[in-house]
Amino acid sequence: MSLLELDDVTRTVPLPDGDPLTILSGVDLTVEPGDRVSIVGRSGSGKSTLLNMLGLLDLPTTGTLSFDGVDVRTMRSGRRDRLRGSDIGFIFQQFNLLEGRTATENAVVPLIYASGSSFWRRERLAREMLERVGLGHRLDSLPGSLSGGEQQRVAIARALVRSPRLILADEPTGALDLETGQSVMDLLDEIVEEREAALVVITHDPAIAARGDRHFRLVKGTLTAASSSSATIDDEPFPSDRDVTAEVTG
């Protein structure tokens, strides 16, 4: 059974004048446990919408989105939220750490929504995870005093602290320099492999995309498989921002 499956998924939103705007169209995607999937696409191509859908934050307008073989549209929102908390970890481009909270307090956040021993041992689990990402010496540091790479490592620790089966990374190196981005991705790959989780990376950076085992390209809301080399992905012409803007407003 697939971990996540999208079958002919479409997502449209109504515009103020009443016409629907199609953001995703006919998307088919299967994610198996342990998969490394990379999706490339320019701004406005529907990447964030697709990521939200994969993370059960959004639902398809048509088509089927299944998690562990269960159509998520048949789930009540509370169950979807709990499933997201326990099985899906998010890593954002801008880290999205909570201001005013230490690294440990940030890493604890997902465990606050857990139950059983994970909840009661949350501080210890968070510290262990931070130590695993090499931040054992910054446990009590606030986000403002951490470098970009360190902040993203805190975000990785937070995403993985509940041992999710699916990691969704949205431009995880987008706010980092090349070298720091590479080291963060090395760490992410290592931990994801160690925990046998599936990783879906959405990026516009071909080098990051090339680290995946399966590659997809999102153009104007349509997902297509791409070849495995970054050069091939890069060779594919991206639609210009003007084209995307025209599509969205049109």
């Binding site: 509370g78 939220d81 998010f90 909570l98």
Partner: peptide
């Protein structure tokens, strides 16, 4: 709002 969105992505239910 952003913080609430982050918490929702971490598994916080609407009720919570």
């Amino acid at each position: 709002i952003r913080e609430i969105g982050i918490r929702r992505s971490m598994g916080a239910t609407a009720g919570r």
